[in-house]
Amino acid sequence: MNFSKRNRNKIFCIGLNKTGTTTIEKTFKDFNYSLGVQRDGELLINDWYKRDFKAIIKLCKTAEAFQDVPFSLPFTYSVLDQCFPNAKFILSVRDNSDQWYSSLTNFHSKLWGNGIDPPTIQQLKEANYHYKGYAYEVNRMLFDTPEDDPYNKDILIRYYQNHNENVMEYFRAKPEKLLVINVSIKDDYKRLCEFLNKTPLHETFPWENKTS
Rank of each mutant, 00 (worst) to 15 (best):
L16R: 11
T76V: 07
T76F: 14
T21S: 07
T21H: 06
N46E: 02
T23W: 10
S72D: 13
K58G: 07
Q67I: 00
K18V: 04
G20S: 03
D40E: 15
T19N: 05
T21M: 05
D30Q: 07
K54G: 12
A63I: 06
N32E: 14
Y49K: 13
T19C: 14
V37K: 02
K26G: 05
K54H: 14
K58V: 06
T62W: 13
K29C: 05
T23Q: 07
L73H: 08
F28G: 06
T62H: 07
Y77T: 02
R39W: 03
L16Y: 12
A55V: 00
D68T: 02
Y33I: 00
L59H: 14
D68K: 14
N17G: 14
T27E: 08
I56R: 03
T19A: 08
C60D: 06
N17R: 06
L35M: 01
V69L: 11
F75H: 15
D52Y: 04
T19Q: 05
Y49P: 05
D40K: 10
I45A: 07
K50Y: 06
C60M: 08
C60A: 15
T23P: 13
T21I: 02
G41P: 00
I57W: 07
D81T: 01
N32Q: 13
V37Y: 09
E25I: 01
T62K: 14
E64H: 14
G41R: 00
Q67K: 11
T21N: 10
E64A: 07
L43S: 10
L43P: 02
S72F: 06
Y77V: 09
F71P: 13
T23V: 01
Q38V: 05
F28C: 01
L73Q: 02
T62D: 14
V79R: 00
V69K: 11
K18W: 08
T62C: 13
T76A: 12
D40L: 09
S34G: 01
I24D: 03
S78A: 13
V79G: 04
T19G: 08
R39P: 05
L59Q: 09
D52P: 06
K26H: 11
K61Y: 07
Y49V: 04
R39Q: 09
L73Y: 14
E64C: 12
L80E: 09
E64W: 14
G36V: 05
K26N: 10
S34Q: 08
D52M: 07
L16H: 11
T21V: 01
E25F: 06
L73R: 02
V79P: 00
T76W: 08
D47P: 02
